[in-house]
């Protein structure tokens, strides 16, 4: 089975995010960049599927040169080859444009299955997966916690939790699956894996290599415009409940929730 995993590089979840001087972007100086945590589940599931059915795992990322590191991480985990779409003209593109470029790169390839994360933990959009599926005209299965292939590897059955229900959905292949926690435990790259990754193929492509028009990309082509970034409404420390004993504190808290916050 040939599997593609889309990788987004995002700031480490530990990072404090600060607004830059233009009020529209963030300060990137001190940021440690990592693979979007949801994409780790995608890489793991792809590797597990390959171990069972054979085939090849290709990882693909769009972004600046530093995305190479994220691709190498996936290669070190065990993916076979990587593609980096790297083009200054793509800087500042919105999700639909990113998806168009990814779809263009994938279109020429042979694939049965594509994984993306359910959302990037940076802009929290969760649009790229569905859009890649749309532009490739294949079905999507979002927020999947369990994937099971038919013995012949021609169809797939997945579990998708929605509020208060778990749906089992069947689909033919090729299909795009978006991942979430619970799907698997992503492996770490081993030392030999890291060594091997250095020799694995990593192709770099520009927008024009993919037959795309640079004017459809970048800040200027955005359909969703960022007006400004804002700090969240300040939440300051409130009352510390006084009391001689835990029982007294509990009674006082209950009283405040009832009389002051009027929640109960």
């Amino acid at each position: 089975m040939n599997i593609i995993v889309c990788l987004k590089q995002v700031p480490d979840t530990e990072a404090q995010i600060k607004i830059a001087g233009d009020a529209k972007s963030i300060v990137t100086d001190d940021i440690k960049w990592v693979m979007n945590p949801y994409d780790e589940f995608g890489v793991e599931e792809a590797l597990k599927t390959k171990e069972k059915f054979g085939g090849e795992v290709t990882v693909i990322g769009l972004g600046p040169k530093r995305v190479t590191e994220t691709i190498r991480t996936a290669l070190a985990m065990g993916a076979d080859k990587g593609i980096l779409i790297c083009d200054d003209a793509a800087d500042g593109s919105d999700s639909i444009a990113v998806a168009k470029a990814l779809a263009a790169a994938i279109k020429g390839m042979e694939y049965d299955l594509i994984f993306t994360g359910q959302r990037g933990v940076d802009d929290d959009l969760g649009v790229v997966g569905a859009s890649v599926a749309e532009f490739l005209d294949i079905p999507q299965l979002s927020l999947i916690e369990d994937v099971e292939f038919a013995e012949d590897g021609k169809s797939v059955k997945v579990k998708r939790p929605v509020e208060g229900e778990v749906l089992t959905i069947e689909s033919s292949l090729p299909v795009l699956i978006t991942t979430q926690k619970g799907l698997n435990e992503p492996r770490y790259a081993s030392l030999p894996g890291i060594m091997k990754a250095k020799k694995k193929p990593l192709d770099q492509k520009t927008l024009s290599d993919l037959g795309l028009d640079a004017s459809d990309f970048g800040e200027g082509a955005r359909k969703l415009k960022i007006v400004e970034l804002l700090s969240p409404p300040a939440r300051s420390a409130g009352k510390i409940i006084e009391g001689e004993s835990p029982q007294e504190k509990a009674a006082e808290l209950a009283r405040l929730l009832h009389e002051e916050a009027k929640l109960l």
Partner: peptide, 12 residues
């Protein structure tokens, strides 16, 4: 965005 570390004001 960033799970609430910031907010983005956007238009179309």
């Amino acid at each position: 965005i960033y799970a609430g570390k910031l907010y983005a004001k956007v238009t179309y």
